[in-house]
Each structure stands twice: as C-alpha cells, then as structure tokens.
Write a protein that binds this DNA or RNA. Structure first.
Length: 881
RNA sequence: GCGGACGUGGCGAAACCGGUAGACGCAAGGGACUUAAAAUCCCUCGGCCAUUGGCUGUGCGGGUUCGAGUCCCGCCGUCCGCACCA
C-alpha cells in the first residue's frame, strides 16, 4: 500500500497551472507538436456548453459550484469525445444590489462590482473548471453594453420597440420605482410608505407580437425539460375566444369584453371592468366613492399574485348594459379588483354558475347564478349552484337558441350569430386569439444598468442616439445620498444637442432591465471582443445554438423566454439567423442544508458539532457546549445561516471533493443536501482513487504492452467489468445522470479493488497485468470530468506524459459488454420464487424446462397445471396457474 | 387565486419501454489491524415471523394487467414560479 496521502493542497494548483499554460480549454484550440495551443480553425465538430452566468454578489455559493461542475463535466466529456468545445464564463454585472451597496457602503457600483468579480473569478478558478477565460465578459463593460445599445436601436428600426404607458409600483417617500419583491404588504421595503400604482411612459420590446412563434417554437425544443416547455406554454397563455360589445342602456356607449366562454352568455349576471378601464375613470369623475375604490386598487401592487390572491371586491357603477340576445335584459356593470386592464379587453362578463371567481364575486354582491351548462347525465332541474361553479363539459340549458348544444357547438353558434349582429355599424362579436404574454417593459429608473440610447427633443421627439455615439456610457461622478435616479439629477450628463435639429435636448435617463443584458450574452461569447457589432455572423454560425444550457429552474420562464425572443428579434433586425438559442436545456436543483437554532437565533454549521448514535442525532455549540435544535433542511441563505462557503470546503477537502459531492447523491435536477459527512465520503473516494491507482500500477503491464492473445478467467472477468463500466458511465453522462455515473464509477472501483485483493505474492500473469492497466486507466478517464485534478495526478502516476484532460474518452467493446449468461427471476402468479441462470440465446423451451425444474417453483405450483407461461427475453419469467 | 413539480429503508437515492424494489453512498451496529487513536479493511443493515423459508412493503384509497414504484381515477402532504430580484 502506498504510504503517502494524496495531497490535494499542492497537487490541485499544480495541474491548474499546467492546464492554463497549455491553454487547452480555449475554444478552437489546436496544438503544435509540443502540445501548445496555437489557436486557429478546427476541423472538429463544435460543442457549446453554457451555464447561466452569475451575478457578481461577491462570493460564489455552493449552488454555483454545482451548476458549474455539471457544465464542466459535459465540457470535459465532450472534449474527450473529440469535440471543439466552447465553455465560456462572464458576469451578469448590472443590477440593484450594486446600487443598494452604494447607498449603504458609499462605494461606487462599478468599484463594488469589479471587486466582486475579481473575488469570484479567483474562487471559480480554484474549482479547476475547464473554462475559456479568454472570452470573459461583463455586462457592465461599455464594450458589452455598447453593442446592446446597438441592438436596441436596430430593434427600434425594425419596429420591435415601442413606447407606451404602463403601471409601476411607486414609492412616494423614496421617489423610486419598486420591484415587486420590494413591495411588502403593500408598502415600500425601505420607506414603509404605502405603495401607489403609477403610470409611466416606458420603452417596450414587442415580445407579444412573437407570441405565436414563441409558442410554436416550443415544439421544436426536444432537448428541453417538458416542465419548462409547459411553463412557457402556459405563460404565453394562448386562448381562443370572442370579443363581445355590449350596448349601454342609458347612453349610446358600449363596453367591449373578451371571453373564452361565449357559450355561457345566457348565464351572465354582471359585467366587470378593470379599475383602470376608461369607463371606470369617467364614472369616477362624478363619483368620489368609486374614485376611492379605484385608489384602493392602486395600492394592491402590480403583481398578478397580489391581485389574484386579494379578496374579490367590486364597486357597482349603477351603469347597465343590454344583453346581446335580449335588449330588455339589463346587466349591472361593476368595477372589480381582479380584472386586469392589460389582458383581453380589460373587461369581462361574469357567469357565476360556471366560473369560480365569478361565483365568489356574485355571492358577495347577491347577483345570483343560473346554470346554463348541464353535465352529461344530470337532471337539469336538480342543478343548483351555491359554492362550487361547474366548469366542465356538458349540454346547454336555459339558453334559448343554444339549448341542447354541446359547449363547443354553443361557442361556435354564439360567435357565428354575433359576427352577423350589427351594433353601431360593426359586428357585435369578433373572434380573437388572445395571449397572456404582455410586451416586455424594459425601462428602469435606475443608474446601474445599460443606458437607453435615446435623445428626447422637444421638436423631434424621441431620437435614436447616432451610432457614432455608442456606447452611451454611464457617468462615473454620481451620488446615492438622495432618493431617485442619479442619472436624472446629474448636472450635465443628460444635456446634449438633438442629433436631428441640433437644438438643446436631453438624454433618456432610464436604463434597461438587466434581463436584456442576459438575453444575448450567449451570442456575445461567440465573438466577445468584437467592437463593431454584437457578434460576427461567422462566429455565431460556427457556435450557435448553445448545445447544452444549464441553470436554475427559477429562470424557466422569464430569462429563457426573453432569450428566445431576443434570438428572433436579432434575426429580424439583421443580427443572426436562428430562432432558438438553446437546443438543449437542463435545470439543476439547489444545494440545501440543515438549519440550526440556538437560544440566540440561527447558528451556522461551522459553529456546531453533531453527535450521533443509533438512536439520536443532536447538535451542540462548539464554544460553550449548549445544545441547539436541528431544524428543517432549507435552501442555503444568509438569514438562516445555513450556508457553507465553497472556499472553506476547498481549503479543507480540495476542489475535487467539492465537485464530486455536489454531483453525487442526488439527481442533478433535484436539490442536493450538503452535509459534512457526505463531503467526507467524497473525500474518502478521492483518496481511494489515488491508492487504487497506485496498487493497480504496481501490477499493471507497462504502457503500450500488446493485447494478449488469450485472457484467463480472472482477466476476462475484470475486463468485462471495465467495459461495462465504460458503457454505462458514458451513457449516464450523456443523459446528464451524473449521480448514476458516479455510483457506477464507485461500483467499478469496488470491482477493481476485489480483483487486486486476489493478487498474490507471486505477481500476475501478462494477461491480467494488461487488464489491470486497462481497468485503472479507464477508471481514471471515467472519473476525470468530475475530479480532474486527482485524475491528472493518477494519470501521470500510471506513466503518462500527456494530460488526462487531453486524452480521448475510453470506448467500450460491445462484445465484452454483452453477457453470455443471464440471470432470470422466475415468478409464479407474479411473485418471485426462484432465479435461473440461462445462456443469453436460450430458447423458450429450454428456459421453461429450467424454470419449472426449480424447487421453489414446484413448491409454489402445488401441483396445479400451468395456464400460461410468460417469457420476457433477458428480463423475467412468469408462470401463471 | 393561477400554473408547475415532487412523495421509495434511519438519511440521499437507484430501478431505461410496466418485468428481481432498495444499486451506489451517508449514518448506525459488530469485527480485524493498532499500546491507543486516526486511517484502512471485512461483515450486518426496510418491517414482521421463522429451522429450510415465508409474509409484507415504494404518501393514502380504488382500478387496469400474467405482473404496477412505473399506467388510469380520486384524495393527502411538501416545495417552487407568477412579469421591476437575478
């Protein structure tokens, strides 16, 4: 046995330096005779693996370690498989936290951000990720956001940008717009003031125009998780319905509503309009009570969750509208807090019997409910709707000319009739495909973002900044000691002459949503230093789409939808060719940890020790021995103090151990629980790899030894184990089942250990020696994507002078993977009674004879005749009696 | 409210198209080595009964099937997202 321990502290930095000097992780790498990367074009197939780039918060967390370890496994695996791999890294560097830090710590956002980037870059480098650092980008770099401004202007020219009013959360004390998460119980998080909804004129990307295309495109994304596609599908929210215009009873006006259930029109009890509906505003002018109600709605917050979870409330306007099919039937018009102005027509008709929300509303205001759809087989007279609306299928009742029709037929009949009915010179009904997807408001009243390159001129309006002005850079001399946007109150920055008429004009002081920054960075990585355009067409053609994108499920909708939109918008404004930027997507789970609570509050894992025996598991403070309560396992967060610092882990166990642990134990799309015991388990395996290679190396054949003509029993067994492990680990990595790949590698290590235990003092024969080398080298290459440093050290220890990081992936010999004898379980009436060993090509008769001869089978048969004999080849035998 | 996901030993999990439930690891218990400890190695490890062996078991209740963790119907529980956090 090898005496010296594997010393990660010296070994890991050594290999990182060697990799870096050899520049082997740069995309498009080709090498000269000395193994130096001389760059240039590559004949290899391309593979682009991308992990969502981090926000530079200052420290990486275990979630980053997991995310980037997964991407690195794929990058190293694909490189070994012979691909030219692009695996870049950058920084999502604009955003609110930098401004908050500036307000608190008096540090300039740029200084704070770049310091954080430097710290996090060093941390990421210590993980040994095979990243192409020559392509590093930061979105707060003018070189990056200048090209983004170019995109904005080209989108504007292509008609993809719009300027219109929309609602924001306004904090009247801080004079600032609040994010939804900054609104807590209707109040600003910092000021505590009641938040108002305000109309602001803002810039929009017309993503809604792409609704149908974005929906259709989902079908082509076969390597995306179904759940993400479903979430986007629902988010786009296509619905086919009818716009219906209702005539007002006491005036010549009308109210238009959108409905997906025109079939239930005879069950209508009321109309409800949004608080911001023009009609609501006009009534409110003469009705202070309604004005108060509308104001109340404005304090609800702008998020859908806030609106829909609020108690359903309405206000009777006293206006009445005529039912489209009966001019004497008048319906009341309410202003309701749950109707959204942005969706459909900003007005609905309520059918309480067949819509739960309408029913809740109706019950509150005593508006009644008449059932008009009768479920198949139910007695119409027996239908009474009290607390539960019936939203299912059935046939129409109480509905005049619709009676007896199915829901689908009735929808069609109503649409057909209203299209032919005239109201004020136009059809009363119009079919419409409606989408929930709204245009993307990109204006932010903040400093630390990409300036919107527009100049406002009193005479010429909103004028694009000339392209020679790009990038329009942020002024550095700003302060954060007053509320509001520093750009807006900067003394000189915004004052510029109008590019068209030359008169004094002012710059747009809003910056872009940071989602814009992250919507095209994948394309920038293909040509990160281009000063003329976002990315050269040739570079995008070489690398796009991203073959495998990896990130958190929290980005399932917005970021991924915006990026898909951006690809289309770039295409339509002359900046690319493809619609779908990510052909493969994988969403990884979080890293979670136990929580500990002492008398003084939450306690960090580093402050406690755990005592376990077969009965209990208890935690105690290290300093005073006081017992603390072990709480639930939760997402790592500073507030719960249940974080583990990757730096600490790397210092005590090394990067390989950290990488191995976050990849094993749990499937990658599920959360993984970080535990010190688990980390130690991973550490033990890293040590074991080193010992095992040493032991195998002592008995292994020299490098380049010829393949023996014959293999003995022991050699053949280990050889089969080796090739089966290669086949299964390869498949598991290809399917991104890293936990299974590692389990299989460990199993193979166990098999190799068992084979080494058989070795006696006399040494081994040439055939076995050959197989020991083959097994040890395979083991190291299989584990190298997960634990690259120890693999490199073992690889050198086995006598290799070139790098494991550059070695080709081992290939399984199919003839060695196949099993000649197969173990088949034998069931009697579905219960396992015996197990038989049969040749893989045994015919049914032979299997039947063997199965029925088993003692356990005979016992279970109890002499009864066999009714049916089921043989699933290579799987199972079931005897039915 | 709307939408989505998940539920298997003490714990994390595995089980490909419906075919041996619990691979691999963690924890625990027992043993070897050691003056001792660490490290390492070996054995046991879902539950109940038992002598060979049997019964039972994948959140709960039904169903389909020769056969269900897997498919269908209905519950229960937990977690996540909801458009200005990134």
């Amino acid at each position: 046995m090898r005496v010296e321990r594997y010393n990660f502290a010296t070994v890991e930095p050594k290999w990182r330096k060697i990799w870096e000097d050899a520049r082997i992780f740069e995309a498009g790498a080709t090498f000269d005779g000395d193994g130096r990367n001389i760059g240039g074009a590559s004949e290899k197939p391309k593979y682009y693996v991308l992990e969502m780039f981090p926000y530079p918060s200052g420290r990486i967390h275990m979630g980053h370690v997991r995310n980037y370890s997964m991407g690195d496994v794929i990058a190293r695996f694909m490189r070994a498989k012979g691909a030219d791999v692009l695996h870049p890294m950058g920084w999502d560097a604009f955003g609110l936290p930098a401004e908050n830090a500036a307000m608190q710590g008096k540090r300039h956002p740029a200084e704070w951000t770049y310091a954080n980037i430097a710290a996090m870059r060093a941390q990421l480098k210590s993980l040994g990720l095979s990243l192409d650092w020559s392509r590093e980008i930061a979105t707060c770099d003018p070189a990056y956001y200048g090209r983004q401004q170019q995109l904005f202007l080209d989108f504007l020219r292509a008609g993809i940008v719009d300027r219109k009013q929309s609602k924001v959360n306004w904090d009247p004390v801080d004079h600032t717009v609040l994010a939804n998460e900054q609104v807590i119980d209707g109040r600003g998080w910092r000021s505590g003031a009641l938040v108002e909804q305000r109309d602001l004129t803002q810039w929009f990307f017309k993503i809604a125009n792409y609704s149908e295309d974005l929906l259709k495109g989902l079908e082509t994304l076969e390597r995306w998780p179904d759940k993400v596609r479903l979430m986007q599908h629902n988010w786009i929210g296509r619905s086919e319905g009818l716009l219906v215009r209702f005539e007002m009873a006491e005036s010549s006006g009308e109210v238009e509503v959108f409905t997906t259930r025109p079939d239930t029109l005879f069950g209508a009890k009321f109309l409800a309009i949004a608080a911001d509906h023009p009609l609501a505003h006009s009534v409110a002018e003469k009705n202070p009570a309604l004005k108060a109600f509308i104001d109340e709605c404005h304090h609800m917050g702008t998020s859908v969750a806030a609106i829909e979870t609020a108690e359903k409330k309405g206000f009777d306007t006293d206006l009445k509208v005529r039912h489209p099919f009966d001019e004497n039937w008048l319906l009341p018009v309410y202003v309701a807090n749950f109707v959204l102005m942005d969706y459909g027509a900003g007005a609905i008709f309520g059918c309480p019997a067949h819509d739960q929300r309408d029913l809740d509303f109706s019950n509150r205001y005593g508006l009644g409910a008449t059932p008009v759809v009768c479920p198949e087989g139910a007695e119409p007279a027996s239908l009474v709707v009290t607390d539960a609306a019936f939203e299912g299928e059935g046939r129409l009742i109480n509905s005049g000319f619709l009676d007896g029709l199915t829901v689908a037929q009735a929808k069609e009949a109503v649409a057909a009739r209203l299209e032919k009915t005239d109201l004020f010179g136009a059809p009363q009904g119009k079919r419409k495909v409606n989408y929930k997807l709204r245009d993307w408001g990109v204006s932010r009243q903040r400093y630390w973002g990409c300036p919107i390159p527009i100049i406002h001129c009193e005479a010429c309006g909103a004028v694009p900044a000339p392209s020679s002005d790009l990038p329009v850079t942020l002024p550095e001399d700003v302060t954060f000691d007053q509320p509001g946007n520093p750009l807006d109150r900067h003394p000189t920055w915004k004052h510029v002459p109008c590019p068209q008429c030359g008169k004094p004009a002012r710059r747009e002081t809003d910056t872009m949503d940071t989602f814009v920054d992250s919507s095209w960075y994948y394309a920038r990585f293909t040509d990160p230093h281009n000063a003329q355009e976002p990315a050269a067409r040739e570079a995008m053609r070489r690398w796009l789409p991203v073959d495998q994108y990896i990130g958190g499920i929290e980005h399932a909708i917005l970021h991924l939808l915006y990026s898909r939109f951006f690809a289309r918008a770039m295409r339509d404004s002359g900046h690319g060719e493809l619609a779908e930027p990510f052909s493969g997507l994988f969403t990884q789970g979080m890293v979670v940890h136990e929580t500990y609570k002492g008398p003084e509050g939450w306690v960090s894992p580093s402050e406690i020790r755990i005592e376990t025996n077969d009965k209990s598991r208890r935690a105690f403070m290290i300093d005073d021995g006081a017992e603390v309560v072990i709480g639930p396992i939760e997402k790592m967060s500073k507030s719960k103090k249940n974080t583990v610092d990757p730096d600490d882990i790397i210092a005590s166990y090394g990067a390989d151990t950290a990488r191995l642990f976050v990849l094993s134990d749990s499937p990658p799309d599920r959360d993984v629980i970080w535990s010190d015991e688990g980390a130690q388990g991973a550490w033990r395996f890293v040590q074991r790899l080193w010992r095992l290679t040493g032991e195998a190396g002592r008995v292994a054949a020299p490098m380049g030894a010829p393949v023996p003509a014959q293999f003995g029993e022991a050699a053949r067994k280990l050889r089969q184990a080796t090739h089966r492990a290669i086949a299964q680990v390869t498949e598991n990595i290809e399917r991104l089942r890293f936990n299974s790949a590692i389990a299989r590698i460990r199993e193979f290590a166990n098999e190799l250990t068992a084979a080494l235990d058989e070795v006696t003092e006399e040494g081994v024969a040439a055939d076995l020696a050959f197989v020991f080398r083959e097994a040890a080298e395979s083991l190291i290459l299989l584990v190298a994507p997960m634990t690259p440093h120890v693999a490199e050290e073992c690889w050198a220890d086995l006598g290799h002078e070139d790098l494991a990081a550059r070695a080709p992936w081992p290939v399984a010999d199919p003839t060695l993977v196949a099993q000649e004898l197969i173990s088949l379980p034998v069931q009697v009436n579905g219960k396992k009674r015996a197990e038989i060993l049969v040749p893989h090509d045994a015919d049914e008769e032979a299997v039947r004879a063997e199965a029925l001869a088993q003692e356990g089978v005979q016992r279970a048969l109890e002499g009864r005749p066999v009714k049916k004999f089921i043989l699933v080849p290579k799987r199972i035998v079931n005897v039915v009696v």
